[in-house]
Nucleic acid binder design. Structure first.
Lengths: 365, 365
DNA sequence: TTGTAGGCGTTATCAA
DNA sequence: TTGATAACGCCTACAA
């Protein structure tokens, strides 16, 4: 025969963490009253409220958020899966996201996919199973499987894509205008006199890499410069590929090069060292992503800065709108990149007057 | 009168996510059987097992980890609170931790305290309420309140301290041998002829900052160099304080300086730029923390590398041991720092033979 | 081997 | 305003 439920629930005399039942017993009220007081929902008489508060304090009661999540069907937790938090591009983004999440009462589960679709798949499944309220996804190049789509669909978990689109996934996107960024970089290089401009791209199955490449091509055309395949290298946004790019491209002696992320720039620079070419004397360079330290080491890097913190912030804003049902139509947020002229582009090697003119000229030729 | 429990449980005909009951009904077995099959616990006949598996596939069933956590009283989630993930010191640590966690089936909740005790307090309470199985804590300088101690005590949640000790908190610690790191840095500088060596410390209420300072003092004594208060500056591990340190220290024209983290080194270098002093020509510099890009920009920084990834890895190893009850005695893991000689120390400015000798000499004078 | 039903700690519904 | 009790979805004694 079933035991007396009330009794067993009320028991809990061990040294266990107090539950809402213990508080109710201590305050001589029902669990409803306790819950109402704690969540400040429903009207409770001052007398009982005080009794509850006293009991809470006495027992050092702290609600079990796990149980609450189960009951309310929401965890106040977001999942964030990025390629690799150790890639300096991501920390500021994650920080922006975490700040916004924390401010809204959400916590952040961090995942590193290493751009591997199997790792990503595992994490997506995990996040869904842990019932996160939303997922911020820096998608691997691979497209989602039908099973994954079905899973995300059924779970009704909002997703916002970060810096990378995913064909077939109609959802919110937060990204930078990478085409424009590349155009500004190339235009700047062309403006200060570079003709033979090489280009190191990211993996072309990634949307932002394609956009940067489009910008490169478009800008070349704008400036009447020839596109030469041998001045182009497809990397993977990691150091090693930048190193290979340097060894592949520099022997052609380009006037300048646009490297589309910081990690590849590092590899590129060390290749230049090995070859014995110096920047900016032997070749100009513009890199994507800016960092606080780039201004105090030589060569000072000219960069296309991407608003990392704001990207993360915007991503959780969008996801919160989705969670709160404030919006149902997917939107895309495009943030503006910003050219930061320093020395690596070769700027300082040109006559002062010309240089000053170039710096302030934002028009096409 | 109470409804028929079975029926209400079994209902769930809406478009909701299937629960274990739905699977049981579909497979015409009990929830026990489903649970046993899913978790591969207890013996289930092949026939039933197959039926269950078919039902799971058909319904696209995925266990609700929230409910499981509530029932099993463990979340398979770790909390990690660091000062600031945007500080380049932390990403690799977090990555090491996340990798180890993921490998063991744990996820990672990331929190940024900004070294503020109120933010830290909020996060600790949140993590406890979310019932994380363990907490990796890069403690703020403040000591835990009695209420916090009580809370952590009652929750029985294992904690491992990361890089910073906390007086009164008897628990596992993962850190680097910072005293030794500073000694090696100073010894190297002394070996290559520097006499007047300045020092930029972190906040002295942080244990590792104190240790580095002790190392500085000890090394000065070993090498018979005088300790001069005006050659010492207490920063806070952030860029701005390094900048102030530069302006405070450089006018005294030290032969060299040891800056005890990367962020402060950035600030220090830019101050040097403003003053018009060059490194290593006008002053030698050794910095703490090494990064992949330090080898390809000028001046190439001589550094004391700390094994960041390994720190994170070790931290979750310890916490897992605690969670699994494999160990009850608190232990401290001390990892070795490593001197990486490049050019900022002024090494190259000395006669080749002496320099080579110095590089290989690991003995005291 | 399999099923039944209580427990995990909340919230929420519906009488009283 | 309060209280009793059914969800939430899972695990797991204990029974059969």
């Amino acid at each position: 025969m079933p035991k007396n439920v009330k009794r067993t629930r009320t028991a809990n005399r061990g040294s266990k963490v107090p539950s809402i039942y213990d508080v109710a017993r201590e305050a001589k009220v029902s669990v409803f009253t306790v819950s109402a007081v704690i969540n400040d929902t429903g009207r409770v008489s001052t007398t009982l409220a005080r009794r509850v508060e006293a009991a809470v304090r006495k027992l050092n009661y702290r609600p079990n958020l796990l149980a609450r999540s189960l009951a309310k069907q929401q965890t106040h937790t977001l999942g964030m899966v990025v390629t690799d938090i150790a890639n300096p591009f991501f920390p500021a983004i994650v920080r922006g996201a975490e700040d916004a999440a924390q401010k809204a009462g959400y916590s952040m589960l961090l995942c590193n996919s290493d751009d591997k679709e199997d790792k990503e798949a595992v994490y997506l499944e995990l996040l869904v199973s842990k019932r996160v309220d939303g997922i911020i996804l820096n998608k691997t190049p691979s497209t989602l499987t039908v099973a994954q789509r079905r899973m995300l669909e059924e779970a009704k978990v909002p997703i916002v894509l970060l810096m990378r689109t995913c064909p077939g996934l109609k959802t919110d996107i937060v990204q930078t205008n990478d085409r424009l960024g590349a155009i500004e970089a190339i235009s700047h290089l062309a403006r200060i006199g570079h003709k033979k401009i090489a280009f190191v791209s990211g993996p072309l199955d990634v949307s932002n890499a394609r956009a940067r490449r489009q910008g490169y091509c478009a800008a070349l055309e704008q400036w009447g410069l020839e596109y030469l395949p041998e001045l182009t290298f497809e990397g993977d946004y990691r150091i090693e590929s930048g190193h290979r790019a340097g060894h592949a491209l520099l022997p052609h002696r380009p006037d300048a090069v646009l490297v589309t992320n910081y990690l590849m720039t590092i590899g590129f620079m060390s290749a230049a060292d090995e070859i014995g070419l110096r920047c900016p004397e032997d070749f100009g360079l513009v890199s994507f992503d800016d960092y606080p330290w780039l201004g105090c080491f030589r060569p000072r890097l000219t960069t296309i800065e991407l608003p990392k913190y704001e990207l993360g912030d915007a991503a959780v804003r969008l996801i919160l709108e989705r969670i709160q049902g404030k919006r149902t139509q997917p939107i895309t947020v495009n943030m503006l990149p910003q050219l930061r002229v320093r020395e690596s582009c070769g700027f300082m090697l040109y006559p002062k007057r010309e240089a000053a003119a170039a710096l302030h000229a934002h028009d096409k030729p």
